[in-house]
């Protein structure tokens, strides 16, 4: 009988790894908790830095899933057991799935912006997250405030829940900086009269073409970048948002009213990852994300024989890096199965 792999998590990493393993002739069962594949990708409109439609990436990933891949949606896992050779994934209805290897691609959750209560998410109507803005891009022609007006001024807050000791997350979420710049440009493209201010600590434009995007934002679109972390925001009687921030370049406190405030929420380990790690006896790193055996050479293997990791379950990553990592995991798994 042929060997099989169970992949938990049907996002980008799970889909790409499933496609690559199936292409090499192994049976794959792809488990997904929600009612569709694609994970966070389905909530995004366009992707940085190329501005490609996210649906195109989803289509590519879907096309890879051949008849060797069994897709199981709306799955809840009750327990995972392991004997010498096999993993047994027991579902909530008692069904037991068996495989020779297990891949965790359970990804991340967005930081709950309401936990930074001082920014007013969930309290003031015109404070939204980058994910909410992306949903607006996907669903509507225009960006509007809660009062159904075109915003004259929009503020972007960088590092919400990232690099923030008080929020309990010291790490950088990598993709929020460039997402903020991309979204700012997109608002300008749609509604050029909007004034945009980005409040940042420092901009981490680390990857190819990111810096170009940052230059475009300033030079072509006149988006203003103010170095300083937001201390708090309040709601004006007209439901616009008053932000208080220290401009650390001038060393003065600054107050400003915006009609819409966008919080660039960072990555946190997904709640399901924590539960599964517990079942499998994996110890998360100090940041809560899971850690491979070796961070240079064995980047997808874990301390548990036959258990692999791929994608943002290991920490914040771009889509490009997630896809590459999924392929690397596929190679490691094939090698393991053929041992």
């Amino acid at each position: 009988m042929g060997k099989s792999v169970i992949i938990i998590g049907g996002g980008i990493a799970g889909m790409e790894a499933a496609a690559r393993i199936a292409a090499m002739g192994k049976e794959v069962i792809l488990l997904e908790k929600s009612d569709q594949l694609g994970g966070h990708l389905r909530k995004w409109d366009r992707l940085f830095p190329t501005r490609r439609k996210s649906d195109e990436v989803f289509e590519y990933l879907s096309n890879g899933l051949n008849d060797k891949v069994t897709i199981r949606l709306n799955i809840k896992i009750n327990k995972i057991k392991k004997d010498d050779r096999h993993f047994f994934v027991i579902l909530e209805d008692g069904e037991s799935l068996k495989s020779d290897a297990l891949l965790l691609t359970t990804g991340y959750d967005l930081f709950e912006a309401g936990k930074k209560e001082e920014y007013g998410y969930g309290i003031y109507d015109n404070v939204i997250t980058s994910a909410d803005l992306e949903a607006m891009f996907r669903n509507s022609a225009e960006i509007k405030t809660s009062g159904n007006q075109k915003p004259r001024r929009v503020g972007f807050v960088h590092c919400v829940g990232s690099r923030d000791e008080k929020a309990g997350h010291l790490y950088c979420s990598k993709v929020c900086c460039v997402t903020g710049v991309k979204q700012a440009i997109e608002i300008k493209e749609k509604q050029p009269d909007t004034e945009i201010f980005c409040f940042y600590m420092d901009l981490r434009m680390f990857d190819r073409y990111f810096e170009d995007l940052y230059y475009e934002a300033q030079q072509k679109w006149g988006i203003q970048f103010i170095r300083g972390r937001l201390s708090e925001s309040c709601e004006n009687p007209d439901h616009s948002i008053l932000v208080k921030v220290e401009d650390t370049l001038t060393g003065r406190p600054l107050k400003m009213t915006v009609d819409l405030l966008v919080l660039l929420s960072g990555f946190v380990p997904s709640s399901d990852t924590n539960k599964l790690a517990d079942m499998l006896g994996l110890l998360p790193g100090s940041d809560g994300f899971l850690t491979p055996v070796d961070e240079h050479f064995r980047t997808n293997e874990t301390q548990v024989d036959g258990l692999f990791l791929a994608g943002t379950v290991k920490g914040p990553a771009t889509i490009e890096n997630t896809i590459t990592d999924a392929r690397s995991a596929a190679i490691s798994i094939i090698k393991y199965l053929e041992k």
Binding site: E117, G120, I123, Y124, C234
Partner: peptide, 9 residues
Amino acid sequence: THLTPGIIK
């Protein structure tokens, strides 16, 4: 309390 605007509101 300014850091917890829910209380002010």
